[in-house]
Each structure stands twice: as structure tokens, then as C-alpha cells.
Amino acid sequence: MSVSRDDFSIAFRSALLQRGGAQKFSVLSLIFLALIIFFLDVYGAKFTKPVRGFLNDVVYRITFLASAPTRFFPQASKDLTSYFNVKTENERLKAEIEKYKSLELNVEFLSDENKNLQKILETEYFNKNLSNIVLAKVLVDKNSPFLKSIIINKGTRTGILKGMPVTHNNYLVGRIVETNYLSSRVLLLNDLNSRIPVTLDQGAQAILSGSGKNNPILEYLPEDYKIIDEINVFASGKDGIFSPGTPIGMTNLDGEVELFVDPNQLSFVTVNLSVQNAGKL
């Protein structure tokens, strides 16, 4: 019995303290070091924030470079396919131009009507001041089972602050949750930690909660409210951060919201700085 206990303690100690050969550090010393780094980061000692920001900026840039081959091959195959389909593409584009020409008049009428309605609702026109919109490139889009986020190449240097809304083609994508000098992290709408006040077509208010899957869900709907297919969901702006009326997605038969923008296919996004300018954050 005592021999087996000795064996256990020898193996245990050896696993923790063993060094030599390729192992320059013992597991125990590295565990202590990791714990110190962890608690310094969590409790935010004065010097850790700039150090973490600098680390983030450097690592995100390296990640962007390291991921170049994984982006190159799908893009190259896409380009090659489109090269061979150029004739069909040309015909399709011609037909689309004709269609858009006929829609042009309608668009002018609808945009005037939209502006008038927004005046009545006392909301700001989303693109009123284009200088408040910053275009950013998606640096890293690493798919994690636990955190749905992307890294963009604009940070505090451009005036980005935590909480600012991020859009793509005027559709809401998420909000800024971490800022560094040259980069920021965007929490996507489908992340489990994302909560956004929204309004539905018929005027019902709800909270759009990320489910960790592709489609977020609606919570805190009015009692007896039945979700039907194809109801548009917009940001209500009640939090003072998201512009009211920013389109988000459409409900489906499962009661989820299918986002207008696929969060896995983002290359460029826009950040609305007007929230900062309006002093809302």
C-alpha cells in the first residue's frame, strides 16, 4: 500500500516539477505564471490594458497574414469560376440594369416618403452624416463554438468606442465589445452574449438574443404574441445606441430571426460613430 502511495506521489511530483531536455520550464511554474497573467488581465491592473491592447493589435495582424492562404484558395477558385461564367454574368447584369432603371423612380418616391416618416417619428436619418460612418475591413473571422465575433482593422485611433453599432449595407451586424489602438472586436448578433432591443413590423417590442447558433431568437415578446413567418425585425433604438429602424432580419417558422447579413460572410463592415458624437456612450 505504502509503495503504491509512494509511486503516486513520485509520478505526481515528477509531472509537476520535471524539467530537462527540451523542457526548460516545469508545469508548476507555468501554471503559476498563467494564473498571474489571468488575474492581472481579469482585474485589469493599470498597465495590463495597454499591454493587452498592444498584444491584440500585433497578434490580429499576424493572424490576418497567417490566414492569407486559407482566404486565397477559396477566392481563387471563385474568381476562376466567375471568369468562365463571364458571358452569362454579362447577360444577367444587363437584365438587372433594365430592372433597376425601372425601379429608380420608385426609389426616389420611397426615399422622400421615408424621410418624411422619419421626421414624424423624430428619429435621425441613418445616413444623414456620412462622416460619422467608418468603413472597416474584417481582419479575423475565426469561428468559435463559444464566442461569435470578428476582428476589424479600425480601433480607437479612428474614434471607435465600446458599444458602437456595426452594420453591413445598412443592416445591423453587431456591436463593438473590445477596442485596441488599431483594431476592435465586434460581437455578432448571433452570439450568446448579444442582447438588442428590437421592434417588429406590427409594432411589438422584444429583445433579440443570440443563441450561439446561426439565427438569434426573440425574447420578452408581448403575452399571447404568436410569431409568424416573414415579419421584419428592426432595432428599436431604445438603448440609445442603435439607430432606430436599422433592419436586422426576418422571422421564420421556427420563431428564430434569419439575419439579413450572413455573419460568416463578412469582408467589410461600417461602424457608426454618431453615437459617440451625440455623447450617448
Binding site: 509537476l16 508545469v27 507555468l30 497573467i37 488581465d41 498584444l55 490580429y60
Partner: peptide, 19 residues
Amino acid sequence: VVMGYPLGISSLSYLIIIF
């Protein structure tokens, strides 16, 4: 850093695997 977790948490988890 890449995943956005608190620093050191993955290292700790990997060190347990090593142990």
C-alpha cells in the same frame, strides 16, 4: 488573444492536459 478570452485561460487548460 485571437478568441477574445481572458489571457492565460487557454494556457492553464493546456497545462492541465500536459500535467
